[in-house]
């Protein structure tokens, strides 16, 4: 019912652009790695309406286990993770279920006080994009951007679709609604694409200057702990190994590492130590730019985007010749 009649073979957001021999990417102060932490601060509804393509909970209502552990994240986990990020001088870039502004404004206030970035992760993480008309998705995205502005004064720069549920129009709509509301100051990066370890230009129907920022999905605590069932200390080691490689490669051309977290995963008492050790290790290196998603995307658009487009075009021409 909800899928378009003709499905695309490729989303068409970017050209093939090999990692080697790109123009050197330079971060501020010649840092090798732009490092960011993206806490997902989410609200899952206890009894959401049914989506035709995806169930919110495995059990019939009330699914107290799944709901409960996510509530734990907000009640217990959030402040634990926030204190740890404070300790290592990291400002979070929050992937926000924007209804949380209404449900738990205390959390929003604490993060705003720390000048953390808020970007849109939809309204609820139990409302999927699947099956929405273009205008419904546009309304949902607009509502989420407006909520962030109303509660924090920030113009939302980035997007991660709720529960990673997308349509063919998601990125176009996000960029367009951002421009409608705040011009070039909103809607200019996405975390939804995992094709690269550097930012890349994304082509949209509007032609807006728009960039994909690496969100390091393999380093996402939920992917590690729930999907791949990784042991906590191994997760800590994976983070260090990932960083070591990107730091080494970043000497020639800057890279990006993200740790996407969830306050109901990494903040559990049996997992926080390994996470802390990784943060201590990463921030203990000199040539690391500890940044936010907006700062990384902004720097790239200001200093690297045009060179990248020119290089992509040149290589495509060479390949066609």
């Amino acid at each position: 019912m909800a899928e378009p009649a003709v499905m695309k073979e490729d989303p068409g957001y970017y050209a093939y652009w090999p990692y080697r021999n790109r123009p050197a990417l330079r971060w501020p102060n010649n840092a090798r790695v732009a490092f960011w932490v993206a806490p997902n601060i989410e609200f899952y509804e206890f009894n959401p309406p049914t989506n035709p393509q995806r169930k919110a909970w495995p059990q019939p209502y009330p699914a107290i286990q799944g709901y409960g552990i996510r509530d734990y994240g907000n009640r217990v986990g959030h402040q634990r993770q926030m204190e740890l990020l404070d300790k290592y001088g990291i400002r979070g870039s929050i992937s926000l279920s924007t209804a949380l502004c209404d449900h738990h404004p205390e959390i929003i206030a604490m993060c705003a006080e720390r000048n953390w970035e808020f970007f849109s992760h939809g309204i609820y993480n139990t409302r999927y994009t699947y099956g929405m008309s273009e205008s419904q998705e546009r309304d949902m995205i607009r509502d989420s951007i407006q909520s962030i502005h109303q509660h924090t004064g920030q113009s939302c720069a980035g997007y991660l679709a709720p529960a990673l549920s997308h349509s063919e129009h998601t990125l176009d709509l996000f960029a367009e609604v951002g421009s409608e509301l705040f011009g070039d100051d909103a809607g200019f990066y996405t975390c939804d694409l995992f094709h690269d370890d550097q930012p890349t230009p994304i082509s949209l129907r509007s032609g807006k200057r728009f960039v994909s920022i690496p969100y390091s999905l393999e380093m996402n605590d939920t992917i590690a702990f729930v999907v791949n069932k990784v042991e906590p200390r191994r997760y800590g080691q994976m983070l260090k190994d990932c960083f070591d490689r990107l730091y080494a490669e970043g000497e020639k051309s800057g890279t990006v590492m993200c740790i996407p977290t969830h306050n109901y995963q990494v903040s559990c008492p049996h997992r926080l130590k390994a996470f802390e050790e990784a943060l201590e290790y990463i921030t203990g290196h000199n040539d690391v730019w500890v940044a936010t998603g907006r700062e990384i995307a902004g720097h790239y658009l200001d200093h690297c985007y045009e060179d990248a487009l020119a290089d992509i075009e040149q290589k495509e021409t060479e390949a066609a010749a």
């Binding site: 509804e45 907000n74 217990v76 449900h103 959390i107 929405m132 419904q136």
Partner: peptide, 27 residues
Amino acid sequence: MSLAPEYLTYPQRSYGMDHDRYDWSML
């Protein structure tokens, strides 16, 4: 293609929890 309007309305979107079993409170 579209979803029923209720999928884009949010009746519980207000302060605290979206049910009455317990109050919102941070440890």
